[in-house]
Nucleic acid binder design. Structure first.
Length: 314
DNA sequence: ATGATGTAGGGAAAAGCCCGGG
DNA sequence: ACCCGGGCTTTTCCCTACATCA
């Protein structure tokens, strides 16, 4: 399903089982339509600046088709034209998608032919559309014409800015149908849905573990490779994750990040705070099967049980 | 108390794709 | 017929926090 692009070639080949998956989770179109656009007013859109920087790119319209696919062959590929389809008379014979204009159908057909005639001179990446190349060039020029009025962070694409602005507004238009959670991004909802479906398409080759995300599998693989990229400047101890290093640094700084809301006590570790919180909640998870009395600690229950056994023996 | 690791959400970067104006 | 830009959508990645276990 996924095409091999020149940029992919640079990366390490993925294990076979990683490639298989990525079944689209069923999130209805309704949810997409929930995405409104109330944020435009707050956006600083400096379009005029965007215009100039890519004028010369047309000349890089070089053939960059994949091996075995000449551009002429794709040009000769039959473009199915049906005049009786009303609004969108041009229909792709491969996927039955329809378009208003023939030129749009022609562009669309590149998906099927694999043709990517627009080629970046900087990194040799290829694109199906000239506008994709033009936009890609911004990654090389560093141009980021859209910025957030709230925090002044800049973005190369306005749609990315729109998504970013939700971090300020707190807007979460994507709601989970299974539970009451909502998310600011559709991709976040999609990730969340795997917690309901239990879907774990990414399997480790070295052990039997499976994961819901490719990036998590990648982190997991460090267990097998022994890779420890994050080292402590204080004691030169190394860790496989940045977060492990961050936690470790607490042992040097003596800082305590976890504070109790009910009293002023502070703790270095969340687990210790959690245990402490039981003293406020008066939670008593350990209950006696004999008399239903409850206790906060298991050893207290044990002592209590001794009293019962004594009763029985008397 | 500490480190390792699975799980999950937040957020950003970049590309895919469609569409209308000129 | 084509170029171009706008804009929605998707993919991918990294960071971080929490939970649990040893």
């Amino acid at each position: 399903m996924e095409e091999l692009e020149p940029s992919d070639i640079k990366e390490e080949p993925e294990p076979e089982q990683i490639k298989e998956e990525q079944e689209e989770l069923s999130i209805s179109r309704d949810e997409e339509q929930l995405e409104t656009d109330p944020l435009m007013d707050s956006l600083s859109h400096e379009e005029n600046e965007v215009q100039g920087h890519v004028q010369s790119l047309d000349k890089s319209k070089l053939s960059c088709g994949r091996a075995g696919q000449s551009s002429s062959s794709s040009r000769n590929a039959s473009v199915h034209v049906r005049s009786n389809s009303g609004d969108k008379p041009f229909t792709c014979e491969e996927c039955c998608k329809s378009f208003r204009r023939l030129c749009h159908l022609k562009t669309h057909r590149r998906i099927h032919t694999g043709e990517k005639p627009f080629f970046c001179k900087e990194c040799f990446k290829c694109f199906r559309e000239s506008s994709s190349l033009r936009r890609h060039m911004m990654t090389h020029t560093g141009e980021r014409p859209f910025f957030c009025l709230q925090c002044h962070q800049s973005f190369s694409q306005i749609s990315n800015l729109r998504t970013h602005v939700r971090t300020h507004t707190g807007e979460k238009p994507f709601a989970c149908k299974e539970c009451d959670k909502s998310f600011s991004e559709k991709s976040s909802l999609r990730k969340h849905m795997t917690t309901h479906t239990g879907e774990k398409p990414f399997a480790c080759q070295d052990c039997d573990q499976r994961f819901s995300r490719k990036s998590v599998l990648r982190t997991h693989m460090r267990i097998h490779t022994g890779e420890k990229l994050f080292s402590c400047k204080e004691c030169h101890k190394s860790f496989s994750r940045s977060y492990s290093l961050t936690s470790h640094m607490l042992t040097h700084t003596g800082e305590k990040f976890y504070a109790c809301k009910d009293c002023s006590k502070e703790f270095k570790h969340s687990s210790v705070l959690r245990r402490h919180m039981l003293t406020h909640k008066r939670e008593k998870p350990f209950s006696c099967a004999e008399c239903s009395k409850s206790f906060s600690r298991s050893y207290v229950l044990k002592n209590h049980m001794l009293a019962h056994t004594k009763e029985h023996t008397i």
